[in-house]
């Protein structure tokens, strides 16, 4: 564990806490893409298949349970909670995310570290996480103004993988046979997808204005 990875995990945790706060405090999921939440649920379920077989540390196991539990809880809330689901706007959350699932799985079948069930699903989860934010970013562009909690959620979610990139650089220089090129390339793509959001978020923060993404 290094400071970059710990900062990344904490930033990721904060993004989840901000999202949970928004949904439970406001009893509303306006501005949140159910499709992105479903993709994240698939990402965590596909990545943490080793949850009960490989014990790394208490921290690792607890964080995996938190990530799986929170993503499924948000999906459940947006689909079935009688108050929250009323604020879900199906008409703006129209990204065809099943193509992302199919495409990433196909890619994982061809590009992986080892052709085994666990490794293919792990590579699939890495590729899927890189593009999972797309429905959410498209929804924000469509819905124009972005409420503060939703904006902070996306900001922290985008920042966490940026910290992981620093972690991979650090590990590359400090560990001899460290090679996570699948994670690194996907992590770079994932963080790059947030670039324009980061730019408009910074502009709105500098001008102390409401965050607006150009359509």
């Amino acid at each position: 564990m290094n400071i970059f990875r710990f900062a990344g995990d904490m930033t990721h945790l904060i993004s989840i806490l901000v999202l949970l706060l928004k949904v439970y405090a406001t009893k509303s999921c306006s501005g949140i893409s159910l499709k992105t939440q479903e993709l994240y649920g698939i990402v965590f379920l596909a990545r943490y298949l080793d949850l009960f077989t490989d014990f790394i540390s208490v921290y690792n196991t607890v964080m995996k349970l938190v990530f799986i539990g929170s993503s499924l809880a948000i999906v459940w809330c947006m689909r079935f909670h009688r108050v929250v689901k009323r604020s879900y706007d199906r008409d703006v959350d129209t990204f065809r995310h099943y193509f992302l699932v199919g495409g990433c799985f196909l890619l994982a079948l061809f590009v992986h570290e080892k052709f085994s069930f666990r490794e293919v699903f792990w590579a699939f989860s890495i590729y899927l996480e890189a593009v999972a934010i797309l429905p959410q970013l498209i929804l924000l562009q469509r819905s124009g103004n972005v409420d503060n909690l939703t904006g902070q959620y996306v900001l922290f979610l985008g920042a966490y993988r940026g910290f992981y990139i620093l972690n991979w650089i650090y590990r590359y220089f400090t560990e001899d046979q460290f090679s996570r090129w699948i994670s690194c390339v996907s992590g770079l793509v994932q963080t790059a997808l947030y670039a324009d959001f980061f730019y408009y978020y910074f502009i709105s923060w500098k001008n102390n204005a409401k965050l607006k993404l150009p359509a």
């Binding site: 990875r5 995990d9 990721h12 080793d50 490989d54 790394i56 690792n60 964080m63 995996k64 990530f67 570290e113 080892k114 490794e119 792990w122 992981y164 972690n167 046979q177 460290f178 996570r180 994670s183």
Partner: peptide, 10 residues
């Protein structure tokens, strides 16, 4: 062959 390194990252 060399076993894949354990995935210790989240």
């Amino acid at each position: 062959g060399q076993t894949a390194p354990v995935k210790d990252e989240l």
